[in-house]
Write a protein that binds this DNA or RNA. Structure first.
Lengths: 289, 289
DNA sequence: CCGCTAATCGGAGAAATACTCCATGTTCAA
DNA sequence: TTGAACATGGAGTATTTCTCCGATTAGCGG
């Protein structure tokens, strides 16, 4: 699997912790929890300190750092220190309370969304984005797959690409996804969307597509997930770390956000994009009053 | 000697070095010179590395760190690491330009989205929201309609409401929307989504539904549009289609935003919402690896 | 130029810290 | 229940930081 990120570039380590959280073991999760709630102290602590505070063995701390892609504890601390530089003002009081009035709820949701898209930007990997754009422009055929909520995101991506004049197919039915993936080959590109990254209905077809020689891009919130393991390029969005919210569907928000970045980049590189947008817009003009 | 500064607050260590430079000894100056011209490497180096590179003894390196006010080499490195995070220069121009690099584009899109959701909040009408929530909770049946891009938003709304345990039907086919609307009646609620508010395929069915006695809510960017004229409640999102951007699809963003506010409010008022969310989440758990 | 003092410097080893290896515990599937 | 794979922490090792102290140099008065 591709390394998470060496270091010293602007990638938010604390967010990264969330994105691999589910793939951590119990002891490692303890470490993650402590670091996330006490980043300042973690930076100053030694391996022994941290292991004691988290209630695990030193070895688990080291393993935790390695899983994040660092060479060791030292690199990890440096990176966290960098995250602390301009830490967003505490997000306390953002929790929605039972007795909040309508406008307060609206404001809190807005603030959460604002934070979410900033976090998305922090997590954005320029190389991944660039490579995704290039691969998509180079692909002979593009297939977008997703089920459930991610299936709706898939429709959105399809719509955007179609408007830009690209020939794309979208599938949301797990059986059809499987069949479709069985038929792809060299020169094709599969774009798999799965928040968890562990959805069988996505993972298996994506693996198959990869074996068939297709290029694979995936959009997920979990970097160390099965789907990411099979992907050539991974687009990572923050995983919901915001508890309690109606539908807990904030991931959709960040997905749309990064897809908008992606399609904006594509439209910049594709010279016929503007015309396509215009043509498609005109095509529905007479459907209006 | 007085300690310069403890640490871990934003004081530029590299500048600090300059400011005490004259008071440094010859060997310490060598260290200072090296650090100032190779800060990245210095952060990664060990005391021994650094002393070799600077051509001095290890002890001089330590003394150098102490003179800067740090407790030791380690603290010094952490602080320099923090100096290295480069705050990207503030964007001179929010408009996306042909020659912008990938990261700049990402930042600009992010800022636009941030503005958009703030604008959405400004437009939010508390009464409309409240009445929408009440009506939806009171409705016998709910029908969500949308075509094109708004059809995808419709799917999203349907998904959210379904997760909250509400019985909702979504239609994206203009013929079926027409038929469906012909059959609604008193006690039913129609939720029409149309950015322009002028889409015939939405306006006509919505008018019909209204005549049939259904309650109508619409989500649009145009307050004085045909669809709004037939609605009991209008949810308004900013219309600013941002110029030049892939697909000009930022409206989708604000739509999702306000729908998240809406569904959050609904989940607060609906006491079985939490259970429904849990049930639906569990239902797909065994589809994961 | 010499000799003295104080500041400076770096190496050797001590202390602290990070890391490796491996035995043991845990989980889970058969 | 047993076996296999995985997870875990402790004991020992390697690495790094730091301390101590003797050697060296610079400054200065004669």
């Amino acid at each position: 699997m591709a390394r998470v990120g060496p270091k010293l570039n602007q990638s938010n380590t604390l967010l990264m912790i969330s994105s691999i959280y589910t793939s951590l073991t119990k002891a490692e999760k303890k470490v993650a929890d402590f670091v996330k709630s006490n980043p300042e102290e973690s930076v100053l602590a030694t391996v022994t300190d941290l292991s004691e505070q988290a209630g695990v063995g030193e070895t688990s701390v080291i393993r935790f750092c390695r899983k994040l892609g660092f060479r060791g504890f030292h690199e990890f601390k440096l990176s966290v220190a960098q995250d602390l530089v301009d830490r967003p003002p505490s997000l306390s009081n953002m929790e929605i309370e039972e007795e909040d009035d309508v406008f307060t709820v609206a404001r809190k949701v807005t603030m959460k969304h604002e934070m979410l898209i900033k976090n998305t930007l922090d997590l954005v990997n320029v190389e991944s984005l660039t490579s995704a754009v290039d691969k998509m422009l180079a692909a002979k055929r593009i297939f977008v797959y997703g089920v459930g909520s991610s299936g709706i995101t898939a429709l959105d991506l399809h719509y955007r690409l179609m408007r830009l004049g690209m020939s794309v197919e979208v599938q949301r039915d797990s059986h059809i996804i499987a069949m479709s993936a069985a038929l792809v080959g060299k020169g094709d590109l599969v774009f798999g969307i799965s928040t968890s990254g562990s959805t069988r209905d996505l993972v298996d077809p994506v693996r198959q597509a990869k074996l068939n020689g297709a290029v694979v891009i995936c959009l997920t919130s979990h970097l160390r997930s099965p789907i990411a393991a099979h992907a050539d390029t991974v687009l990572l969005v923050p995983s919901k770390e915001l508890p309690m919210e109606g539908g807990a569907l904030s991931t959709k928000f960040t997905q749309i956000h990064i897809l908008n970045i992606l399609t904006t980049l594509i439209s910049m590189k594709k010279d016929t994009a503007d015309q396509s947008l215009e043509k498609t817009a005109r095509s529905v003009a007479d459907k209006l009053y």
